[in-house]
Design a binder for these strands. Structure first.
Lengths: 190, 190, 190, 190
DNA sequence: AATGAATGAGCGTTCATTCAT
DNA sequence: GATGAATGAACGCTCATTCAT
């Protein structure tokens, strides 16, 4: 019971934090603003988090973990097929579409964020890259360098997600996804 | 003469700004720090720029313009050959390697920057994408969507440049460039 | 019974308050800390006291009253002899040694304490001074001003008690007491 | 010139600090208040002092140093006579009368003040006590313990100064001084 | 033109107090 | 009665900007 209430309030604060941080950026975000967005008093935030910085970190970590976890599930349920890359693109587009706040913040972790968090994100990102590199090894030509290919794949996705997330221009994500997969699979040469 | 002196001082401030902003991030950078790095008094900056925000904008704009300008030259001097993409990758790597300060800031324009600057950067980026899309139309298969391909290309470059710029891990850029070009040209499939 | 329980809890809070206030000073003491030291919930304190300030006042008052009461007893049981001053010194040293928390706070009532409490302490102090002045009148030379002599006596005691209470340097209180009494009785001149 | 201006402003801040700290106590004093009392902006204080704590320390130190310095002069110019104790009492009364702000603070250094400052004050106080003990050795009976006598002397002075400083009751300091000297010299016994 | 001392708006955080359970 | 989660007023300090020199 009690536990449920506390979990709920914690989630409300995290959600408000994601919204405000993503709209204002870390430095310009005010704890006041996050508190009133979450519908709690300013002091309440400090019952759940040590301070602004830890609040930011927790939010990023939970968001990124949710993405990674679901991405891994997605990969596992996909059959043994190169189409897994298409699935990944689709999933990424959908996840980021549904979690724009977190997406914005993950794509551009403030350069000034403490070294620990930056490093944490870096490690997480490389876990994803390793995952992708393994898939490239499995389905790709032996001519391609798996790590470079994985990096490139992630870069492509991020570039298009960013376009969608930051600029509020709606693309037909399905069509884009298909086209991007084609390019990644076959290259641009005739 | 006088003009020359002023230009010099302006450049000194811009250079100092790039260094400090890139090291500290926009919000944590202090005008004091930029002034002493530039070797001028704090008040002097306000003789050349309206304030912190405009200083940041001018710096970004000049940096990005320099990149775009030289990129266009590079494209024009490159022969009529698909190898132009390889040249672009090489050029990007080199430019970013030599202008890491600007590179960092361009890659992660603070989310908080005013809408005008974000929009300005967006327009500039799309000029580059159009340029790239034209090249795709010229040398690529008719099966690929030129805009998506251009986006993907830029994403790949940025992803690898970011790795190099932020993490101080030195890659052998030449080798990476070659591998990336192969993937972009032929895709990952066997 | 109920009454007994309440009294006990009240005493526990007062004791905890004396300990914390004396260790941290009035302003730096936190009600949280006092509550947990007393082994009660934070809200419980407010069932027994109006707030932080009143808690402090009650504690001081009870401590001071205990001192004055016992001091008066001590004086009454002492025979009709100038040695009563020696007894007073001994008693003060012993009392303060056993109630260091209260001693610290009485010696240095925070300047910020509300005027009422300061005035209350002042009145109590002057009751003691009157008591002492009467003794001076009784046993001292007619040349000395009883009030000034009483003030001086108290000052001497406080000065030495403070040294002992604040600095944790253990003096041989008996020896000191003897020496101080000699000086007060005979003066420093040969 | 410039130096003069800066020194003046520094002094103005120190004076305002003494006034506010002595009226409100350390913790309740607000930097805002000190600034406006000094007639400067809040930020200006931070150009001259590192923060609230250092401001308090500097003020105490300069005040105490001024007292000690002048006290030593007073002792030296006093002839070789037991009357030096009378001079010390007079001087102390006068100094504290003219520097009530500092006097209040010296008498009751907040218990919570950082250990360094408390220790610094303690050392200074013991320098004075040594000075007094030497005088007792010089002019007093061989029967008295010089250190205890010095402590007692200081205690007497402080007790009466405190009465005067805190309670704004004006005594005829000259008369008190004479009476106190008599007691200290001859004791209270007939 | 160049400077840097002065300024004060702005914000993260603490903690005494309240009140629903 | 007893509790402790929630609250928000309060304050020290920072730093972009101004302006007298």
């Amino acid at each position: 019971m009690m536990e449920g209430r506390k979990k709920e309030k914690r989630m409300a604060i995290l959600k408000a934090a994601a919204s405000v941080f993503s709209r204002e950026g870390y430095e310009k975000s005010r704890m006041d603003d996050i508190a009133s967005t979450a519908g709690v008093g300013k002091g309440t935030i400090y019952q759940y988090f040590n301070g602004k910085e830890q609040l930011f970190q927790e939010m990023i970590k939970e968001g990124f973990d949710a993405f990674t976890e679901k991405l891994e599930q997605e990969i596992q349920v996909s059959g043994n097929d190169v189409k897994v890359f298409k699935k990944i693109i689709d999933f990424s587009f959908q996840f980021m579409e549904m979690n724009k706040d977190i997406a914005k913040l993950i794509i551009r972790i403030p350069v000034t964020m403490d070294y620990q968090t930056v490093e944490w994100v870096h490690i997480k990102k490389h876990q994803i890259i390793k995952l992708l590199a393994d898939l490239v090894r499995q389905y790709g030509s032996s001519e391609v360098d798996p790590l470079v290919a994985a990096h490139g794949f992630l870069g492509m996705i991020v570039s298009l997600v960013a376009e969608n997330v930051f600029l509020q221009k709606k693309y037909e994500l399905d069509a884009i996804s298909e086209k991007m997969f084609y390019i990644y699979a076959n290259g641009i040469l005739p």
